[in-house]
Write a protein that binds this DNA or RNA. Structure first.
Lengths: 216, 216
DNA sequence: CGATTGCGATACGCTCTCGTATCGTATCGA
DNA sequence: TCGATACGATACGAGAGCGTATCGCAATCG
């Protein structure tokens, strides 16, 4: 999301807007902002965030890595947190669309994709930082949950609901608890970056959860 | 654990040790270190860690909160990370001993205790750090896993094994996967400090896992 | 007693980062 | 061409935190 100038810009200087261009797209005089710089800044911010967390991320390093002057950053965002806010919005984990054949297969595919993503130290770190520094950056958390965590949960939730509808899962199954289990297990496994799980791990989790531990 | 002087102290200056005191407890000349200061420093470090995380913890604030001079801290620990190392070692989560009546009850009690502990911001931060700052504080991580994480897992593992032995759980149950599920679900729930789980939550998780999601 | 060590306090130099300001240059509309 | 704006670069003052050094006093030994 290429950010707007932070100031009272939306009121689009009535002078220009009166005699030129559609009101939503008022073309400003002078050299336009470089979209390439936008991208470079966001990318650098994400990299540094992954390496050092929100506390370790500093504007000067972002500027250096992006090959950009500090002013170019401050022209777009008022400060560090606001930059991170926009950067984090780009952090969605791409998950495979459920194929819709069996709930068991779809769940295993989802969990395995989450597991694979969690192996990437950058993503683990991103999650951990958001978790750990939540008190200091509450807006960050809200945004992260809304754009990254919740969509994942919703995907899992949808598959589970479909399972109940088709009869593959039993009627009274507690969907929310199951979502917690399936999304949480990835965290328990991936801890410390030393992921000991192989590709068959997701399948074993799903099988265990579907079958149940109790003897019959 | 009141720390030793960081230097090459263990070789206990042969001179003194030769004519005085048991070798393990050599009494040093001069004013002894204050155990009260030890405690105050550790406690202050833990509090600040809870509030600001490892990055936000700074020696000067620890000293101020502990009512102690900076030198008193540096006399004991060479630096910030070493202090945290000793402080974190005191953060073991006390878990209830399994009563041994039913595996279902014992697991629910364990999970509920873990859930309650995860509400403590200190512990959430600890986990977040373990997950995310492993690269920067590798010794910290090792210690945390050895003293906090593994004992928890072992407790859960023992209950599960007992369940298989008594027949309450089915024969082929995958113990390790179950341990991951039970310890991971707490993380999924407690994320961001906004714990939405009530006291019955642990029971629902255990029931769901024991029963299984599949229809029969 | 005198030697030794710890105490709280505080000052110092160092580094890092912030956010602002200002270079000369580049790129746009008019 | 001219005015406006963005660009990368860099200098600046302010503040935070680090780790070291030193103060005068307190506690404990021989």
């Amino acid at each position: 999301m290429p950010p707007e100038t932070p100031q009272e810009e939306p009121q689009e200087t009535p002078l220009e807007a009166a005699h030129e261009a559609p009101p939503g797209q008022a073309r400003r005089a002078g050299r336009p902002r470089s979209e390439q710089a936008d991208r470079a800044i966001i990318d650098a911010a994400l990299e540094l965030f992954a390496e050092a967390g929100p506390a370790g991320l500093c504007i000067e390093r972002v500027a250096a890595r992006a090959g950009v002057g500090k002013a170019t950053i401050y022209r777009r965002w008022p400060g560090k947190e606001d930059l991170l806010l926009d950067a984090l919005a780009e952090l969605k984990t791409p998950l495979p669309a459920p194929k819709g054949e069996s709930v068991r297969d779809d769940l295993a595919a989802l969990i395995d994709a989450m597991r694979a993503a969690a192996v990437d130290p950058r993503r683990v770190r991103q999650f951990a930082m958001v978790l750990g520094e939540g008190t200091r950056y509450p807006r960050l958390i809200e945004r992260y949950v809304a754009t990254v965590v919740e969509p994942q949960r919703e995907l899992v939730r949808a598959v589970l609901r479909r399972g109940v509808a088709t009869g593959e899962l039993r009627e009274g199954a507690n969907i929310e608890v199951a979502v917690d289990i399936l999304t949480g297990v990835v965290l328990a496994r991936s801890r410390l970056g030393q992921d000991r799980a192989d590709r068959g791990y997701a399948r074993r989790v799903v099988d265990e959860l579907l079958t149940g531990l109790a003897s019959r």
